[in-house]
């Protein structure tokens, strides 16, 4: 049982809209305030990565359910340059330009599930889930 929607990430304003929509969905699945804040922050980091490093893309938001457990799954996709060394990109403070630094590693810590696929020259897809 899922409900999905896709939001564009093409500008700074889109990042703000993604945050607001993720907040609403977090409330809908019944997350508490601290968990909402964590997941909205993770979404903000990933949306910004999509914009700044992926050259823009979109995010698919799905309310997912296993048994009685509800969760929110976010899939960020871009067709940017991709990441050659994912392990390194997940390291805190990796980046000299003040970018990915905490983005990927931080988003991973703030989510219950984290998955990344990236192909240089093709793009990057990051999936995160937060369960109630």
């Amino acid at each position: 049982m899922t409900k999905a929607e896709t939001l564009p990430i093409r500008s700074g304003d889109d990042v703000v809209r993604v945050r607001q929509r993720v907040r609403t969905l977090c409330i809908e699945i019944g997350l508490g305030l601290v968990d909402q804040t964590k997941f909205v922050t993770a979404a903000s980091e990933l949306a910004r990565n999509t914009l700044d490093y992926g050259g823009g893309g979109d995010v698919r938001a799905e309310v997912v359910q296993t048994g009685t457990r509800k969760g929110l799954r976010l899939t960020f996709e871009d067709e940017g340059p991709g990441i050659a060394d994912i392990e390194q990109a997940l390291t805190d403070h990796f980046t000299s330009g003040g970018g990915l630094g905490l983005g990927l590693g931080g988003a991973k810590r703030l989510s219950n599930e984290f998955h990344i696929e990236s192909t240089p020259g093709v793009g990057t897809r990051v999936t995160v889930v937060r369960w109630k």
Binding site: L33, V34, Q36, T37, K38, T41, E45, D92, L102, G105, G106, R109, L110
Partner: peptide, 14 residues
């Protein structure tokens, strides 16, 4: 700073 924001910042590692 809101408490939930402070908790998140610490976990984020900022």
């Amino acid at each position: 700073m809101r408490p939930a924001v402070a908790i998140t910042l610490v976990e984020l590692g900022l």
